[in-house]
Amino acid sequence: MAKRIDVSGLTAYYGSHKAIEDISMTVEPRSVTAFIGPSGCGKSTFLRTLNRMHEVTPGGRVEGKVLLDDEDLYGTGVDPVSVRREVGMVFQRPNPFPTMSIYENVAAGLRLNGSYKKSELNDIVERSLKGANLWNEVKDRLNKPGSGLSGGQQQRLCIARAIAVEPKVLLMDEPCSALDPISTLAIEDLIGELKERFTIVIVTHNMQQAARVSDRTAFFNLSAVGQPGRLIEIDDTERIFSNPSVQATEDYISGRFG
């Protein structure tokens, strides 16, 4: 199910502004990879290039290769819509569809794509909500609007919505930054469970979180404001947090700069 991502020589632009430059890395399947680094260093931009959401932004374009199990996402004839069905995304702020109920939110991906059997839909919704550890809290009010849930519940609803379409990879862009510690813990536990089935990439500003949930950690930095962000190093999380090979990483992690 889960797929490997191989990025090589990836550069992304906003119009004429180069946001990230020459990034190469491998993301292992069935693992959690965390991106850390100061604000504006291009972590989120890089994340969005992994499911072709970067080009949704006006002026956004990408050079380089992103291989999803040996298939180039930016190859000719590749449909970004099918890429996004393989590589799902959870955003910083919980964003359930306000016009839809909890049930419809989870079913949205399948319904809007028209690729489902009616009889299976109930099962998929239940399975996804259970997968997002939300089922017990909402099973009695599936037809209530999703926006009536608390922030943490909404974020788990968004995760349920993302995993309902059975992606191979799940990208998370600071999924806990708008949440309280208890909801954060719930999401972190969930990430631990989800990595059995998906390849997970998570952007976070919280280094304890990166240390807690991830198997591998990538550190991004930029040499100066206005310069493009670069990948400084990527290694096993334990090593990054105990004995990183680049001085800049150690400085950032120990809070001496950035």
Binding site: M53, V56, V81, R84, R85, G88, F91, F97, A108, L112
Partner: peptide, 26 residues
């Protein structure tokens, strides 16, 4: 909100369906 469009696009919903089923109903 743009986030709703992005949420829908990230689910692999084509743009025209996103407009029809998410943007317009909202």
């Amino acid at each position: 909100p743009n986030e709703l469009r992005e949420a829908s696009l990230a689910l692999g919903v084509p743009k025209w369906r996103t407009i029809l089923k998410v943007v317009l109903p909202t």
